[in-house]
């Protein structure tokens, strides 16, 4: 089904390390703890007892129940989905391109999403298409178009056996889309603030609508990447060697990139282009827990979700009752943390 003979694949990749139980437990605990923090903290003070009652079905004040169920809980769930998806997509891109600095926006997904959202905000605010607001749809389409464009361009340049052509095509497409986006943003001064706010990223939820919108894409994308984690390990040995193992590099790369991009486009469409999560989380996991993708993929999902939920909680509590754009928080926390991890880890593991 996935371009690989399944009977031969396990033979090939048997013997690779699997996820240590300790790390799995740590990941789950971190994820649950972050969700708890996200549910308990917010610009409106709601006691822990009330939150627990709300979750267990006890009766609480309707105003607080309204805030919890309509605003806070969907935001925590969305943060987990977006963070987990960006991190696992980052891990997938890093595996496919064998580059620890790859992130889900490498092939232009962010530039495409930004352009789509800018056009929708500037020229069609408030319009809905098939019952969904135009902005996430346009962002999704833009992200998909950018990556597809990068693929087509990369194929004409050097064939898909080489990563470099594809990455360069992605850079070119991203630059091109960025230039159009900047022009539109600057010329439509009336919508400047909304566009800027969207680009910085924000987990504004339309209640649970945002969650339902991204959930199928995230589930599908995560499942595909998860199933390919051993193949990503196999890809580490190099294109030529992998071909001799009977794995079609082109097809694996295509499938993984498409899956990762699909999930990325969906979460970016709803949350904006949140930076840093996709590159920092998988890389940090790699430095701390091991380089195998059987370890990196599942832990990226858990820790990525936890990271973004915590960042979102910070963004809505630090300057409460005002909010900070979440992209500011992820960069502010993520970059120094990453530097600390890098410095305290042996250089040989890089």
């Amino acid at each position: 089904m996935l371009g690989v003979k399944w009977r031969s694949a396990p033979l090939v990749v048997r013997g690779l390390p699997s996820l240590p139980a300790l790390w799995a437990a740590v990941g789950v605990v971190a994820f649950l703890a972050a969700c708890a923090v996200g549910a308990l903290m917010g610009p409106v003070h709601i006691s822990a007892g009330t939150v627990v009652s709300a979750l267990t079905g006890g009766s609480i004040d309707s105003g607080q129940a309204n805030i919890l169920w309509s605003l806070r809980f969907p935001r925590v769930v969305l943060g987990a989905l977006v963070g987990g998806m960006l991190a696992i997509a980052g891990a997938a891109y890093q595996g496919v391109f064998r580059n620890p600095l790859a992130d889900p926006y490498l092939l232009g997904a962010a530039a495409g999403a930004n352009l789509g959202a800018t056009l929708a905000i500037a020229f069609g605010p408030g319009t809905t298409l098939i019952g969904v607001n135009l902005v996430p749809l346009a962002a999704f389409a833009g992200a998909g178009a950018a990556v597809a464009g990068a693929y087509v361009l990369g194929q004409t340049v050097s064939g898909l056996r080489s990563n470099t052509g594809l990455i360069l095509a992605g850079v070119a497409i991203a630059a091109f889309f960025n230039s159009i986006q900047m022009y539109v943003q600057q010329s439509q001064t009336g919508s400047l603030r909304q566009v800027y706010s969207w680009i910085l990223g924000r987990l504004t939820t339309a209640g649970w609508d945002g969650v339902w919108l991204v959930l199928p894409y995230v589930v599908l994308s995560t499942a595909i990447i998860f199933l390919h984690r051993r193949l990503l390990d196999a890809l580490m040995v190099g294109d030529d060697e992998v071909v001799t193992l009977g794995i079609s590099v082109r097809r694996v790369r295509l499938i993984v990139v498409v899956a990762a991009t699909l999930g990325t486009a969906a979460v970016v469409a709803v949350g904006g282009t949140i930076a840093f999560v996709g590159i920092i989380v998988p890389h940090t996991i790699r430095l701390l827990a091991g380089r195998s993708y059987t370890v990196v993929v599942p832990l990226s999902m858990l820790f990525g979700a936890a990271f973004l939920v915590l960042a979102d909680t910070a963004s809505r509590t630090i300057v409460a009752p005002a909010e900070l754009p979440i992209g500011v928080i992820t960069a502010f926390i993520g970059a120094p943390f990453f530097i600390v991890v890098m410095r305290s880890t042996r250089a040989a593991t890089l």
Binding site: P43, V44, I67, L71, T204, R316, V319, P321, A322
Partner: peptide, 9 residues
């Protein structure tokens, strides 16, 4: 300022 929805409600 950009307000939080929770706070407005």
């Amino acid at each position: 300022p950009q307000l939080s929805a929770e706070y407005i409600v």
